[in-house]
């Protein structure tokens, strides 16, 4: 038991302590700088001011964060579903790949957030524009990664299955789909935060709720502590998503080098 306690302590010292110190230094430095230069609260509030505003009504921030997370998640689901469906078709047909990939790349190099102002014209004020923009931002990285994943199969395993005349269907489900999981999961680490970006930006333009709306209206009214509180909650949501995804990765990819080598 003593031994176990010691190993837990050692883990805390090696993994938790360094980032905690770094975080404390940044926050402390920020607080000290604001006090030293006497920065106006309207320009940059001290961390304590931000905390004060948050503590006044934490329920409000969590609720708005919940909306943003909800919209981002729905967008992620739609964007991912379409991307994977398309990747499946492209993985099985070179002509389709040649036809669609340039389009997808054109989409990728376009700063898609620029369509934010148009969303209101197309979709109005509801949840749809948020989901749409979130899905749009998720789409490309997932498409490319899933396509790579479906192609990156063990050539020996593929030939073995072909030597038994396995149908493309069973090659897909038994070989390609599991092989793509590492790619899809690492893509999710990119696309989930992107979905949050999409949802927040859509909220700026078309929202009456969500953290994007909070940021926007707080900035309009110079309520900077509120603005920073909203940003802090967004950061927390991002961190939580990342932790959840790495736990999922450890569970699902127990067989993959990337997970095994970190044990």
């Amino acid at each position: 038991m003593n031994e176990r306690l010691r190993s837990v302590l050692r883990d805390v010292v090696t993994y938790v302590l360094p980032p905690a110190i770094a975080f404390a230094v940044v926050i402390g430095g920020w607080e000290a700088y604001v006090a030293w230069r006497d920065v106006s609260i309207l320009v940059v509030p001290a961390p304590t001011d931000v905390w004060e505003r948050f503590a006044e009504d934490p329920g409000y921030f969590w609720e708005q964060g919940g909306w943003t997370l909800y919209e981002a998640t729905l967008g992620l689901i739609f964007g991912t579903a379409v991307a994977i469906a398309l990747a499946i078709v492209m993985a099985h047909s070179r002509p389709v790949e040649r036809g669609l990939l340039p389009l997808a790349i054109a989409m990728k190099v376009t700063p898609l957030v620029a369509i934010g102002p148009v969303l209101i014209v197309i979709f109005g004020f509801g949840t749809t524009p948020k989901i749409f923009l979130a899905a749009l931002l998720c789409f490309f990285p997932m498409l490319v990664n899933a396509l790579l994943g479906f192609r990156d199969v063990d050539p020996g395993a593929l030939e073995f299955m072909r030597s038994l005349r396995a149908s493309p269907w069973s090659i897909f489900w038994k070989l390609r789909a599991p092989s793509s999981l590492p790619y899809v999961l690492s893509a999710l680490r990119i696309t989930y935060p992107l979905a949050l970006v999409g949802a927040v930006i859509a909220e700026w333009f078309t929202g009456n709720r969500g953290l994007g709306f909070v940021v926007y209206s707080a900035a309009q009214n110079l309520r900077t502590p509120e603005l920073f509180s909203a940003i802090a909650v967004l950061a927390l949501i991002g961190v939580a998503i990342n932790i959840a995804l790495s736990l999922l990765e450890r569970r699902v990819l127990f067989w993959h080098e990337s997970v095994r080598s970190t044990r």
Binding site: D154, P155, G156, A157, E159, F160, R162, S163, L164, R165, K174, L175, P178, W255, H256
Partner: peptide, 18 residues
């Protein structure tokens, strides 16, 4: 192939790791 009359073993085992 169709009648599953062939078994193959390669240099690499090529097992499914999952």
């Amino acid at each position: 192939q169709r009648s599953h009359d062939i078994g193959i073993v390669f240099q690499e085992p090529a097992l499914l790791p999952w």
